[in-house]
Amino acid sequence: MKVRMRVNGNQVEREIPPDRLLIDFIREDLGLMGTKEGCSEGECGACTVLMNGKAVVSCLIPAFRADGAEILTVEGVADEAKLHPIQQAFLEAGAVQCGYCTSGMVLSAKALLDENPEPTVEEVKKGISGNLCRCTGYTKIIRAVQMAAEKIRKERG
């Protein structure tokens, strides 16, 4: 079957089998390897992408369900020239270790901040609670999301 969607702003169209999962479509068909597979059953959040602005676990979604959708993966978060404020905040806070959860974390953080630009610590924790991280203990990630909220607010004046 044929699917069409916008991925990171680019229109893509591919012929796929009906059981193709969105994660495999992104990684194998489009070659975007930044989206990671940690558990294949929606428990770890490493494969999180944004579908029409909402954070979803791409390992549980058939690719055809994304037909006509707007998909954002980690590769599309930054502008050409500079990091997104969330990425910049992760850098400054030291919120990355092994990096395997990072793509999903950044996208969950983006979904959260797009909806709630001034989250409390508890709201940040809740917003990323579907994304497991075994390295950082989340401390610096939580701080980074708050720093990012601040940066975005400043950018918007």
């Binding site: 930044g34 989206t35 993966t73 980690v74 590769e75 978060v77 930054a78 990425q87 990355v96």
Partner: peptide
Amino acid sequence: ILNKLQGK
């Protein structure tokens, strides 16, 4: 860190 933050 840049590679990890950008999925590279």
